[in-house]
């Protein structure tokens, strides 16, 4: 049981983005900037996707979007 929990701790430590104290990967300034830019772009793309889905839903269903069987 202890072995499993140790493995899980290692997994958590490797996959979470917390700073590592044992000399693991430290992102350079350029890598951090690039990651931040990519994250913002993904957020904007997802936001645009949500808006498109919302708009198409309204166009397709119109006022019927509010009608549902009780």
């Amino acid at each position: 049981m202890k072995a499993i929990s140790g493995t899980m701790d290692e997994f958590t430590r490797q996959t979470m983005s917390e700073p590592r104290l044992d000399g693991g990967i430290k992102l350079t300034e350029q890598q951090l900037r690039a990651r931040r830019a990519r994250s913002i772009a993904i957020a904007l793309a997802l936001g645009a996707f949500v808006i498109v889905i919302f708009a198409v839903t309204i166009v397709r269903l119109g006022s019927a979007v509010l009608t549902r069987p009780m």
């Binding site: 992102l27 690039a34 990651r35 830019a37 990519r38 913002i40």
Partner: peptide, 8 residues
Amino acid sequence: VEPSIAGV
């Protein structure tokens, strides 16, 4: 694998 430097 080096962390990516790819920009948007």
